[in-house]
Design a protein around this nucleic acid. Structure first.
Lengths: 179, 179
DNA sequence: ATATAATATGCATAAAGTTGCATAGTCAAA
DNA sequence: TTTGACTATGCAACTTTATGCATATTATAT
């Protein structure tokens, strides 16, 4: 019952099709929540049944028809309820850390390689986040309340990447990939 | 196909029962992987069918009988295969950050309260991690390779808690809970 | 002409995870 | 003596997430 809320959050700004949502979950919102198009279409179906969305088929020139979804007042109410409800923490699951427990009896090279790859990915992601921050969230204190919220999510993303890059440094050094 | 590998990782050190595993997933290994006892018993059943474990019923004085599970060579091989295989990254899913996108049209107090609670939890967790580090992983460079791996997982946990505590500070200040 | 990429939606199945329920023995405290 | 806590295992139903397959239109490049 959480993908639906992420979808509704995206629909707050503007009406979107399943395809649009899939793209959005690949970018921006997707920094903190990911979903495949299959999952999105399934969830949209359920949300329609619950009356949280209203569909609108749009004919397009040069493209297949699409179905735009808009939040209904019931959907809005469900979203508001969720936001102020208790956040159940998902149990942190990190394959890489569990794998590290096994490094003594396996070839460590593949793991070291993965850590190096990750560091590069994090660096790219961090650059993107920093660009967004500079362009749109330069002075957080002056933002309206809703933009402050989005800024904080972005800030969490930035901190996460930075933290992880530093950890990769430590790991690569300790495992002898550098030294 | 990952809980099974976390279970086998725990069984590397010593034979354990489902109950033991549930406790372990509530501590130590559980810092990076969590599972309920129901899930563990289900998974153990599947792993037996696959021949990854061998069971051994142990009668106990003053306690119900328990079933100790040991890794078979097939299990060990499956674990080794997994460790050197590509790590598929789980999509980061953080309800709290998605909720932050909605802070403009809801009462912000519940969210602020949750951030404050989280910060306290993180502080407690961090203290625990630091204690473990001081006691068992004081000089990481001098550790054997397998203990280096465990240390790195611990280090990731420490960095994560520290990072999150700092973020909570920023969030609470920006949302006016302090200032 | 034909292949490829982008747009657009969906079904079926499987794996993973959650929640509620059920059972049963031992021990200590009230 | 009964209540609660700890040890110990498990089923059933459900939700959530993932994976593979399937289809159809249009635009662009070869």
């Amino acid at each position: 019952m959480a993908l639906s809320h992420a979808i509704m959050t995206a629909l707050l700004e503007e009406d979107l099709s399943g395809y649009d949502l899939a793209k959005k979950f690949d970018m921006s919102l997707g920094f903190f929540w990911q979903a495949s198009h299959q999952q999105i279409y399934q969830e949209l179906k359920k949300m329609l049944e619950r009356g949280w969305l209203s569909p609108d088929t749009v004919e397009q020139a040069g493209k297949p028809n699409k179905i735009l979804y808009a939040l209904t007042s019931e959907g809005k109410a469900a979203l508001d309820d969720w936001v102020v409800s208790e956040t159940k923490s998902r149990s942190a699951k990190e394959d890489l850390y569990v794998k590290l427990y096994n490094i003594g009896h396996c070839d460590p090279e593949p793991l070291i390689g993965e850590i190096a790859d990750r560091q590069l990915q994090c660096q790219r992601q961090l650059e993107l986040y920093l660009k967004i921050k500079d362009r749109h969230y330069g002075e957080p204190e002056t933002l309206a309340i809703n933009r402050k919220g989005i800024y904080l999510a972005l800030s969490a993303g930035i901190r996460q990447q930075q933290m992880h890059i530093e950890w990769c440094d430590e790991a690569l050094e300790l495992l002898g990939a550098i030294a």
